[in-house]
Amino acid sequence: MNSTLAVLINVPILFLLYIIIYFTQALSGKRQFYGVSLNSDYFNKKEFKELDKKFKLLLTLGFIIFTISLLICVYIFEAYVSSSILPITGFCIYQFVIFIYIHNKVKTVKQDLSLEISDLELEKTKVILDTDFMNEKNTIVKRYSILFIIPFIITIIVAIYTCTQYNSMPDIIPTHWGFTGEADAFSEKSLGKVLLNVFMSIGVGIIMYVSSVNSLKSRAKLDTNNINESKKAHLSHLNKFAFSFFLVNLGCHLLFINILIAVSSAGNVNPYMIWPATILILVASIYQTYLYYKSPSKSKSALYSVDDNDDNWIFGSIYNNANDPSLFVQKRFGVGWTINIGSGKGKALFILPFILIIFISLVSF
């Protein structure tokens, strides 16, 4: 990699992160403001608007600083690999720190204003238990659970095949592939290097499957003002969400399968599979972001539930409620779902990615 390529790859990634985070609150719905439950009628109140501007100002300053640090890594130290890791990782940590800072400020302002404004909190509506709706929802989840597991099973089969080819692999095997699909980095063959790709594909596949299914199972918040129309809207959205999850899973497993085949044959990856799979993941993710933004559960009139309680959240981003059976709930700040670390399954799923990272790090070195 040269300096021009390092800049062309890393600066757009950093800028994309900046843009996504800059507009995250706008994508977070009408129920939370920087991770704090708040009546959306007051989002534009002066005190809250000033905190929103402050977050965006600090974020912009951070983007400028980390962009400069990236350019220093590339042009002064010629640390091309570090330029792909340190500035981007640092910017992600920085934005989380300023989010916590603004989150705490919002909580303080909300507490102060609540002394004079009685309806700052979300309206605590009654929980609605509709068995017909729940059965229809479960039917959709079960149908797509089967679809999700099909590409995962194929990945497992290819992973097993890769392990059986270990003895026939050459002494030098590829470890990285370029944009054209040609191998551009190699290493001496070892069981650890081969198992790295196998366990990474299966491990990430498990995380994706569990996350996809349990995200679809997450609590649906019906509109108390129009129950029947709300049920139709929720089921329609659930079908679309499920389809977008299937496309993301399919694209990822196509990548895993292609890489495993390249490892087993000690050859190049197939660009006619890699690029369509990458585009599929990107398009499906954008579509899913749009669906999340339009989700009925994020509307102002959605019913109140336990995950709307500020006391059940750590820093407005980590859900911790042992009394809630939900494994996944919708995020308060941003797009997507987050794990309920209050449950045993939630703790295990939360720790699993870190175990994978440690394993990959140990095998790589």
Rank of each mutant, 00 (worst) to 15 (best):
R219E: 14
L195N: 14
E229S: 15
V248F: 12
K240T: 13
H176W: 05
V198Q: 09
G192R: 05
Y209K: 04
F179C: 06
S211F: 12
D184A: 07
K193R: 12
L195D: 03
G192P: 08
G178C: 11
A183T: 07
V210Y: 05
S201Y: 00
F186I: 00
L191A: 09
L216T: 04
E188T: 12
L235W: 09
V210M: 08
S230F: 07
A233T: 04
H253E: 00
F243R: 11
N249Q: 12
I207G: 03
M169R: 07
G251E: 01
P170S: 07
L222E: 06
T175D: 00
M200Y: 06
L191R: 05
K232P: 04
D223N: 07
N226D: 14
I207M: 09
A183W: 11
M200I: 10
L254C: 11
G203W: 05
N226R: 11
V213Q: 01
K221R: 15
G203S: 12
V194Q: 01
S218C: 03
E188C: 12
F246S: 05
S211C: 13
N225F: 10
I202Q: 01
F186V: 02
S218L: 03
E182P: 03
I227S: 04
T224L: 11
A233I: 02
T162L: 01
